[in-house]
Amino acid sequence: MTRPLLEVQNLTKHFPVGPRTFLGNAQQHLRAVDGVSFNIERGVSLGLVGESGCGKSTCARTIVGLHPATSGSVRYEGVELTTLSRRGWLPYRRKIQMIFQDPYASLDPRQTVAQILDEPLALFGLGRRRERRLRVLALLEAVGLNPRHVQRYPHEFSGGQRQRIGIARALASEPDLIVCDEPVSALDVSIQAQIVNLLAELRERFDLAYLFIAHDLAVVRHLCDRIAVMYLGRLVEEAPREEIFKNPSHPYTKALLSAVPYPDPEIERTRERIVLRGDVPSPLNPPSGCPFHPRCHQAHEVSGDRCSHQVPELLQKGDRSLACHLD
């Protein structure tokens, strides 16, 4: 069997917060990512979903090296990334690219589109000036922008068009894996669908793998082959798309799916809905045992007090991994 493209094992990212001790050590740690493991095969898209504050963006940023990992391992084609130096990272930056949520904040307002797209090409030494210029035009074409607008600045484009520029920039270095952090959340519905279609089309065309971070399950369903559900820094369930949507196993996955509003009054007003109680606990002080147990509507089905005392391991069963004491 061939190696997965990306292997993430027991990845943790803790941020020191609050007052420090005499020796300068933090007294408290925010456990943003708390032992996450998954693999991404070549050409496969994994959707990472969860509510705000669950650690999905931190997880993505730690994988691409924007945050140093606290512990755990990230391997790309077998090479450990977490211990690489800045220089050592360079060849992998070319292969792993990122698309950000906010198309307004992630493009340099002082650069023209030509400069923005030429930068990765020049950095990785991809062709001479003339070749690069042609490549920039081809990239604009690939993401559905008019190549004649190459000398324009980001502010001259709409939100959806800017996100296309961000996508073109990520494509420039011919990556194998693109980490997409909520790339359509800031866009209006009619534009959102355009971008989702573009990402799907580019995946086919360039055989890309995506790590797709989102909170909108319906968008993820359109684009991803596998889905991982995250809660309070941990994965609670990971499975092929259809399994997650047709047959969710973890109580949190079930609740999350049932809370997604349907744009259909008949379904919306008749279906059974699991309304969770309370708020997501603070990752500064996560609950003991299963992080979901204080809100879980099925915790009473587990005998004894395992849910509140023992952290459930993420166990693989066939094609699905699940972290729940229920069985």
């Binding site: 519905v189 534009i191 369903r221 359109h222």
Partner: peptide, 14 residues
């Protein structure tokens, strides 16, 4: 609008 019951083999309409 993306839906949880739409056909994923089709392009999303926009």
């Amino acid at each position: 609008v993306p839906r949880l019951d739409s056909d994923t083999s089709q392009k999303m309409s926009s």
